[in-house]
């Protein structure tokens, strides 16, 4: 429903606004030179305000990026902005040190090993369930769906303690599969909700035609519903992937030191914040490079996924 890209309706096309502003002075009669000047001025002020806001938004991340390129002693003695006057002092040493830091690199791979299966599983399980809720007949269907949607309201905090005990009993506590399972379970209500609603929009005639031709439900699901549902599935996958990739709370509890993801590994370095910038700054960029790449690669689906996911 919304996207940043020009193809989406959210794009404020210059056409209506310029038309609007050309009509604006009509109450004062003819658009005189004074009105024209005022309009240009106010437009200039708007441009200036937004440019300042944009810079304000870029500055914090840019500052950390510059810090990540400075040696520790420089970061300890002066601010990142002093490096702008002599960029020759910037080095990639922190990054190469980070790549040699086996703890950080292991945790990076743990993040991958958690995020990818957790995303794929949610998509598969929720697509199956979403299809069943949308197009299969069975008693109590609407009530069960309502119960699933109701679970959307459950904050993950409510589940932490009982699931931790349960996983402890079956030996999943502290393991990567345990973290994945928790993310899958708490990602499902939203995923089922989203996909059920999207699949329900598929024209009934298409499904009936397939059924009368004797296609099995599994075949209809794989060759008709999944391809048609691709936009929703893509948005869901991106949303779920980001959610899991960026998670700290769940991993903080369910992952032990062997299976901890990057967020938890970096968090444990925060205690000596001042002296650890050399690890934390490049580490933060290591952790955000993947989601930001996903953002730029799939902008539309990303925005839609985030917007839809905001009900969570």
């Amino acid at each position: 429903m919304t996207a940043l890209s020009p193809t989406a309706p959210s794009k404020p096309s210059p056409e209506p606004s310029s038309k609007a502003s050309s009509k604006a002075p009509s109450r004062a009669g003819r658009p005189g030179p004074v009105a024209w000047l005022m309009r240009q001025l106010s437009r200039g002020v708007v441009q200036l305000i937004l440019a300042v806001v944009g810079l304000l938004w870029l500055a914090p991340a840019f500052g950390l990026f510059v810090s990540s390129l400075r040696p520790d002693q420089d970061n300890a003695s002066s601010g990142w902005w002093t490096a702008l006057t002599n960029p020759g002092d910037l080095t990639f040493d922190n990054y190469s040190a980070l790549l040699d830091n086996s703890g950080i690199i292991d945790s990076f791979w743990n993040t991958v090993l958690i995020s990818v299966p957790a995303t794929v599983t949610v998509v598969v399980v929720a697509s199956l369930a979403g299809y069943a809720f949308a197009w299969l007949e069975f008693p109590g269907r609407d009530w069960i769906f309502l119960a699933v949607v109701g679970m959307l309201v459950v904050p993950i905090q409510v589940g932490l303690l009982p699931v931790a005990k349960m996983f402890g009993a079956v030996g999943l506590f502290g393991t990567i599969p345990g973290v994945i399972l928790f993310h899958v379970a708490y990602g499902l209500p939203f995923a089922v909700f989203l996909l059920r609603n999207y699949f329900a929009e598929i024209p009934k005639e298409m499904l009936e035609a397939a059924r009368t031709e004797g296609c099995s439900e599994l075949r209809i699901f794989t060759s008709l519903v999944l391809p048609l549902g691709r936009p929703a599935i893509a948005s869901l996958a991106i949303f779920q992937f980001l959610w899991v990739w960026n998670d700290m709370l769940v991993a903080l509890i369910f992952a032990d030191s062997q299976s901890q993801p990057l967020t938890v590994a970096l968090q444990s370095e925060m205690r000596q914040f001042g002296s650890n910038i050399g690890v934390l700054a490049p580490g933060a960029f290591l952790s955000l490079i993947v989601p930001v790449t996903v953002f730029f690669a799939f902008q539309r689906h990303f925005v839609q996924g985030v917007m839809a996911g905001s009900v969570k």
């Binding site: 960026n246 967020t263 925060m270 914040f273 955000l288 996903v294 953002f295």
Partner: peptide, 15 residues
């Protein structure tokens, strides 16, 4: 920033 984890945001703002 919506794509960035709270942890990375936290590090950014600690600076």
């Amino acid at each position: 920033p919506m794509a960035i984890s709270f942890l990375a945001t936290g590090i950014i703002f600690r600076v």
